[in-house]
Amino acid sequence: MSVGPLPIAPYRRLWLYGVVASVLFFLVAPIFIVIPISFSDSEFLEFPPRGFSLRWYAAYFSDPQWMAATRVSLIAASLTVLFATPLGTAAAYAIHRAQSRWVRSLHVLMLLPQMVPLILIGIGLFYVYIQLGLVNSMLGIVLAHTLLATPFVVVTVLAGLQSFDMTQEKVARSLGASWPVAFFTVTLPQIRLSVVSGAFFAFITSLDEVVIGLFVAGGDNTVLTRRMFLSLRDQIEPTIAAISSLLIVITLAALIAVALFARKAD
């Protein structure tokens, strides 16, 4: 048994509570401003709102342009999940299993898209997509988002594999499972939680993405975030706040779903 650090007397911990509270406040404060604004009856983005109404939610749901952008975003996010999850899982599995240090160092390469500034990726993709005719296409958006989302899947699945005993796969193979069968019946069921969280991150990454969308996601395939950005530039009205609030709710709901799934898995 290891002996933990000495407990700190409660009154001496007060300042810690203070620090935590202020950090949480700064993180959450924008949400507490956006959500009230979304229920405002004012024509402008103002805080605190003077009256209550649902008119901006109505405006959002009744505007075909907003709806089209939402549809594009949701389709792109779903397809990104379908692309990035298997890709990231396979990559993480390969990195985890690899014996050679060379392959293991690919890990760092996989994380590059998260380190390069988005604007550079956006510009680069734009030029490549022009050559390929992918600008403003759904495929182009999904590929770009997959590029960004795959590292999240790799990282979460790698974390899941850390606590998985690879001997189990060997046992499965000795018991008569070919290697893919061993993976799908023994390994995958046990790392499914990290795969699901990876998929969730991929979905949110795609849904939230703005910068690359500005370059390659216009025209018929304008994503929601791009439309929000343009709308902010052209007219400042609380529809944005309503959409933001909805996005927050969706994200929260997904988070809770993952947490519930995790509890059930235990």
Binding site: Q168, S174, G176, A177, W179, Q190
Partner: peptide, 20 residues
């Protein structure tokens, strides 16, 4: 032959039972 076609039973040091 790959391991799964050898028809050899094996018990590992850490048992490696499937917890799921």
């Amino acid at each position: 032959k790959p391991p799964h076609l050898r028809n050899i039973g094996m018990v590992f040091q850490n048992y490696a039972l499937f917890p799921h």
